[in-house]
């Protein structure tokens, strides 16, 4: 590790708030996007199954 201690790593000299807020926002946005993308196929699959069951029921 480049830093001497974990506290120094968190502080980043005087730039800690900038670096960590930039990474925090980025992580949040990327994680939300990945979650939405993943969930979408589940939702679509469930919806298609629901439609299929409904069709079978009506026959």
């Amino acid at each position: 590790m480049y830093f001497e201690s974990f506290a120094a790593f968190l502080q980043m000299g005087t730039h800690g708030p900038f670096v960590w807020s930039a990474y925090g926002i980025s992580a949040l946005l990327i994680a939300t996007n990945m979650w939405l993308a993943y969930r979408r196929q589940r939702l679509v699959l469930n919806e298609i199954r629901r439609l299929a069951r409904r069709d079978q029921g009506s026959l």
């Binding site: 480049y2 830093f3 980043m12 730039h15 800690g16 670096v19 930039a22 990474y23 980025s26």
Partner: peptide, 19 residues
């Protein structure tokens, strides 16, 4: 964030570059 050296001009704020 943790292992790359510090930038001699911008200090640690340059680490934002990695994202």
């Amino acid at each position: 964030l943790a292992f790359a050296p510090e930038d001699y001009q911008q200090g640690n704020s340059y680490r934002i570059i990695f994202i």
